[in-house]
Nucleic acid binder design. Structure first.
Lengths: 168, 168
DNA sequence: ATATCACATGTGACTGATCACATGTCGAGG
DNA sequence: CCTCGACATGTGATCAGTCACATGTGATAT
């Protein structure tokens, strides 16, 4: 997995410029990790070179609009259906592994900070969810990601609530 | 976040050799991602050089046992309590974002494959959980990680079950 | 004796991610 | 007219992670 796939996926929905791509990453930061700005442009160039995307237009301020090619669509589909890499890199989970190394007070503090974030994400996702419901076939109706993210943050919040309360 | 912290955390529980560290990573692969073999040895050398770990013994077959130093403990604690990086890199979630790009049949197939994995992990975690319950203060009583992982995989399985059944 | 396997550590090359910095354009408002 | 902020793309250095490969030891069984 890498940025490549995320970029290819967004490209599959509509042609975009690097700049627009960046804001896509920013908007969906609850689900997709934040992309380093320069890497997006590099990925776009590589994708083009590999024939998975092509440059379809030049706009103002030197902007380049990229679109997915047939080969790109095929590559995306192949990746989606290929066996997944289930390895999880999530800092809060890694911290949980070693949380026994700090005292009870610190542990609760850690869990509280986590809980605040998880609840914030849930609130954001719920607001976005209403928009999804209103327009069922909206641009990129990402129902699966939305549901998975809701499930995920609910699970995380559940853990954090118990730990913040001091449950052992 | 990086391997550094995972290695430091394990070191905080007991002195280990690189080889033992590798098997730790292997054992807890439901929670910590698999560590590339050579990287573990590199991290150990770096940690030593930075004064966060020290070499405490040489054993058979050139094995080197490392232990955490006071500075290492302090660094671990600082990391644990520092604001977390909540960005999530998880291939199944990224795939979910773009799952609308494939047909209903493919989507169910994808979800089924995921479900099988999530349920397997839950089974593994439950078996390990019984051991945790029996020895409440066992070596590295990682209750937090265990609970978080259970919550996590239950959430994932819940999503996958719905998607595999074809829910829209 | 010696073959084999588990133990144990390492190097070199490469790729992808990240950081810091650099450059230029277009439109709106003072 | 000029400044400022949003738009838009890029380079170079560095680092962590990954892949492929290399090397050697000690115990055990045949």
């Amino acid at each position: 997995m890498s940025l490549r796939h995320a970029v290819l996926g967004i490209l599959a929905q509509k042609p975009v410029t690097g700049f627009e791509l960046l804001s896509e990453f920013d908007i969906s930061r609850s689900v997709i990790w934040p992309a380093p700005q320069n890497e997006v442009y590099r990925v776009l160039r590589v994708l083009k070179q590999e024939g998975l995307a092509r440059e379809v237009a030049r706009g103002a301020r030197g902007s380049r609009t990229y679109a997915i090619t047939d080969a790109g669509r095929e590559a995306l589909r192949a990746w989606l259906m290929a066996p997944s890499d289930y390895s999880l890199r999530y800092e809060p989970m890694l911290k949980a592994v070693f949380l026994s190394e700090v005292g009870g007070e610190d542990r609760r503090e850690r869990a509280k900070a986590d809980l605040a974030f998880f609840e914030e994400q849930l609130a954001i996702l719920k607001i976005r969810g209403e928009a999804v419901q209103r327009s069922p076939d909206a641009p990129g109706k990402r129902v699966d990601a939305w549901r998975m993210a809701i499930s995920f943050y609910q699970a995380m919040a559940e853990w954090a609530r118990a730990a913040a309360a001091g449950d052992r």
